[in-house]
Design a protein around this nucleic acid. Structure first.
Lengths: 229, 229
DNA sequence: ACAAAAGTGTTTAATCTACACCCATGT
DNA sequence: ACATGGGTGTAGATTAAACACTTTTGT
């Protein structure tokens, strides 16, 4: 066993990316429509093969950049899927990554080129291979992660209202939250800065804008937050 | 992109297993001493290459069986490590699994054949490649998982005392726990059966033995436990 | 004046934490 | 009789959950 590598089996290794976004109402996933075989015309996660000189993280970043035009996207490795016949063309292992992007910041041209579209979680179509499974796992991970670590800020504009943040959490966790309890919890974390500005678009009264304070957040790291919302 | 697979790069895919055990005192990891190059003589995780007709789970089960002689070991996929030069011989991606075994039930002959040895967490030597990193990640995952889901029972004999269970938790979480609070918490989960038997080996008074009740546990699944110890 | 969303605190319930003494038995 | 580990309950603190009214301003 393990004496030499010569006789061992090699496989294709792909990364597939679950890209989450938020549009003030729904949590969404960015899917592409395949214009190549197999399963041409069907919806799928954006993916690509691992290349010789890159790590899986590199590959995921590359794939994400290709579709969104964005660098330094928040992402996390999710799981490696390896059913023998998951890909009908040839044995391919898929290491999945989930990513979180600001739905307003990505490059809309690229999206067109790839026939990509945002789908609300409740409206995700049948995907190729085991991609529905992968999405499910990503959603569950995102939910868990969100209740431990406030990572959702990538999904919002730089300045946002408490209401937007609350809607985001409601979308991610798929449940209603009491607004007073929510605000108290968020404030107790002490990682936001309240601005003097108001957003006047959603009401006559206007609502204060907040910014995520990266520095405060970093200082508190390690303390995990356990939002328990 | 993705047109054909022909031109794409293939890699070796290995599974490496972090095998946890518990000896009534310490949480331990089973390591093998390599009797082959590279890094002959150094300690390492037990691993093996993915084969043509098996999934990663299959491969991990196979590797675990090879070293312990046990089937149906509790295990969970951990993470895929992919640094380009992590393996000096040839590019190899490692998908790691952590496993939890009863330290008294595995086959001691096999362990000898592999020059394997149990190491307490605090005494893990320098391992080959990135294996120390992998072990760290496994320990962190085990700690988190243990506080959400009571999975530690695999580490104990079928019948065990509250004291043993508490020591196990203390070993996993690496902290002291108040015995009354611990018992209350465990009892509130209602997944153990208290037996009439006592274990007389640890004290003159003897202490009651308990059994894990798989059925009750299954009924409660989905409710996650959040031990918060 | 009213409609629509924003903002704000308190009370109750649940859970967590800290803590100390008696019990049973073998020697 | 005493040494050793086993067993048990409660009070105080913290955290979570439920809940309703006032403010602002454009129409």
């Amino acid at each position: 066993m393990l004496k030499g590598y010569f006789s061992e089996y090699k496989v294709f290794l792909a990364v597939d990316c679950i890209i989450f976004g938020f549009d003030d109402e729904d949590l969404k996933v960015l899917l592409i429509q395949r214009d190549f075989e197999p399963e041409k015309g069907k919806w799928s996660l954006m993916g690509g093969f691992l290349k010789k000189e890159e790590t899986l993280d590199d590959a995921a970043s590359r794939v994400l950049f290709k579709l969104t035009g964005m660098h330094n996207i928040y992402m996390e490795q999710l799981y490696s899927f390896s059913e023998v016949n998951r890909d009908p063309v040839d044995r391919t292992i898929s290491t999945s990554y989930y990513a979180i992007v600001n739905i307003d910041k990505h490059n809309k041209e690229l999206i067109k080129n790839y026939n990509a579209k945002w789908f609300s979680l409740s409206k995700i179509p049948d995907l190729i291979f085991d991609h529905n499974l992968i999405v499910d796992k990503a959603v569950r991970r995102l939910r868990r992660r969100t209740s431990i670590n406030p990572i959702g800020f990538e999904l919002l504009p730089e300045k946002f209202t408490m209401r937007q943040l609350q809607k985001l959490y409601e979308a991610i966790l798929d449940k209603d939250i009491d607004k007073r309890n929510f605000i108290n919890k968020i404030n107790s974390m002490d990682i936001l800065v309240k601005l003097k500005e108001k957003d006047m678009s959603s009401s006559t009264k206007g609502s204060y804008l907040y910014k995520f304070d990266q520095q405060k957040y970093d200082e508190k790291q390690g303390n995990n937050f356990y939002l328990k919302i």
